[in-house]
Amino acid sequence: MDTMTLWHVTGWEFAALALAALLVGFSKTAVSGANTVSLAVFAAVLPARASTGVLLPVLIAGDVLAVLTYRRHAHWPTLWRLFPAVAAGVVVGTVFLMWADDRIVRTSIGAILLVMAGVTVWRRRTADAEAEPEPVTSRAGRLKARSYGVMGGFTTMVANAGGPVMSMYLLS
């Protein structure tokens, strides 16, 4: 197994990684788009497959602090309803990472970030025209929850970018 070392990282690249890690903290608070920039920086400086693993402990630490802070405000039935679909997405993402080389993962991360940015812009432009959301108990609502769950699990596993997908679902 090929292990990654950080000896090849220059001072400027290390500073970019440090700034990107700081942006992860901002993304867990009020600046939700900051995580997209940090994902792109990590994938640009480090090998793409390794960047997801290096960034993961930073994201987990932020998630643990967020859960400890906001656990009383969470709607747990909604989150538990998403869990099976998210778990399936994580499994699909794991299989993809086992198969894909660094070039494919780098391209996938870029594509995921571009799609997330496009969907965010589209949703903001159509926010006023949208109808009432489907209840989760309806067939369309369940399909929507499963789709977002699988996408969230896959994007979390491949690019550490499941946050925007889950935000889109929860805000819809």
Rank of each mutant, 00 (worst) to 15 (best):
D128C: 00
V31K: 01
H73T: 14
L59P: 10
V91H: 00
T137E: 15
M98S: 14
A50K: 02
L143I: 12
V24P: 08
T156C: 03
Y70M: 11
A85R: 02
T3G: 08
V92R: 00
W12P: 01
A127Q: 14
T52L: 00
A145T: 14
E132R: 08
W122K: 07
W12E: 01
T29R: 04
T10M: 02
N160P: 08
V105Q: 06
A87V: 14
T120L: 10
T10S: 04
A74F: 15
P57D: 06
E130Q: 06
L113C: 11
L65S: 05
M98C: 06
V136W: 03
S27L: 07
A48W: 03
Y169E: 06
F154M: 05
S27R: 06
V150Y: 02
R103G: 13
A131L: 05
A16P: 05
V64S: 01
A20N: 03
G25F: 11
M4L: 13
V91S: 02
V86A: 13
L113E: 08
M157G: 02
G149T: 07
N160K: 09
F96K: 03
S147E: 03
A66L: 12
L17N: 02
T120Y: 11
G153Q: 10
L23M: 09
S172E: 12
P133K: 07
V67W: 08
L68D: 02
G141A: 04
S51R: 05
V45N: 04
V37A: 14
V150W: 02
V45C: 02
V115W: 07
H75I: 10
L65N: 05
G118I: 12
K144I: 13
